[in-house]
């Protein structure tokens, strides 16, 4: 589904990504871990098309299409969804109105018929239930006055509504208490299918107890320095990152 080849990117004068290679197939869950400042969130931002990132080199291919050539909205319409680490509050835009606009723009792009009010409401209720999202929050202004946990749960609700094929969760677990983490994880597990794929960016192994990944990658200094299966996450939890950093430095680049 997704193939990233030698991706190099910078913010202002600072190069953050220094040759990322990653292949994600449909049905897979990949976890990306790594110390602070290693470039995890930058990778998510580059995939979603945030404009302060400049791609210097490399390719990102989503089912045969060049993702880097697309505007952020076209990436979303092609099926990329990034759950924000810090979801934005937009007073005056109602959550539900925003979702209806988004869903209908995506459907128009995919040449699917628009949902009428009744169909949309039905879908919204069904997905709220699936991800245990509070109905009261649905009609409020987008994220305005939401708690940190409510904002993250809203991201998962949006994900459930928009049905993307590639879901990038940027530290969705940070700032969540145990209950919220369980709810968010349950939501993701219910949404997993053979047709979609997830990239989980996280600091903590804890999330991976709830959402079990097929692969774990360690990102350090803008490169993936080690890949493995879910056992790698446990090893990291136990030993930290230092042993990997050292072995990485010993290798000639």
């Amino acid at each position: 589904m997704l193939t990233i080849k030698n991706l190099n990117a910078r913010v202002e004068d600072k190069q953050i990504l220094k040759g990322i290679n990653l292949k994600v197939n449909a049905g897979e869950v990949h976890a990306i871990m790594g110390p602070n400042g290693s470039g995890k969130s930058s990778l998510a931002s580059v995939l979603a098309g945030r404009d302060n990132y400049e791609v210097l080199e490399g390719e990102v291919d989503l089912d045969g299409k060049d993702l880097l050539e697309m505007s952020p909205e076209d990436r979303a319409r092609e099926g990329v969804f990034m759950a924000f680490q810090y979801p934005i509050e937009i007073p005056g835009v109602s959550n539900i109105n925003f979702l209806r606009t988004a869903l209908n723009e995506i459907r128009a792009y995919r040449k699917l018929p628009q949902l009428d009010a009744k169909q949309f409401l039905k879908l919204s209720k069904e997905r709220q239930k699936l991800v245990e999202f509070d109905a009261k929050l649905v009609n409020r202004s987008l994220n305005e006055g939401f708690s940190g946990g409510e904002k993250k749960r809203n991201e998962i609700f949006q994900l459930a509504m928009l049905e993307p094929k590639l879901c990038v969760l940027d530290e969705t677990d940070s700032g969540l208490d145990i209950d919220a983490l369980r709810i968010v994880s349950n939501g993701v597990n219910k949404l997993r299918s053979k047709d979609n794929a997830f990239i989980l960016i996280t600091h903590y192994q804890r999330l991976l107890e709830y959402i079990v990944p097929d692969f774990v990658h360690v990102l350090y200094d803008g490169r993936i320095i080690k890949s493995g299966t879910k056992e790698l996450a446990l090893e990291l939890e136990e030993k930290g990152y230092d042993w990997l950093k050292e072995s990485f430095r010993e290798q000639p680049v």
Partner: peptide
């Protein structure tokens, strides 16, 4: 940031701007 958030959900630039101006006027 708000523009990017809306666009990242598939909302085109013009529609996103209209949503935000409506919100400003709210």
């Amino acid at each position: 940031e708000a523009m990017f958030y809306l666009q990242s959900r598939g909302i085109g630039e013009e529609a996103a701007r209209a949503l935000l101006v409506n919100a400003f006027a709210f």
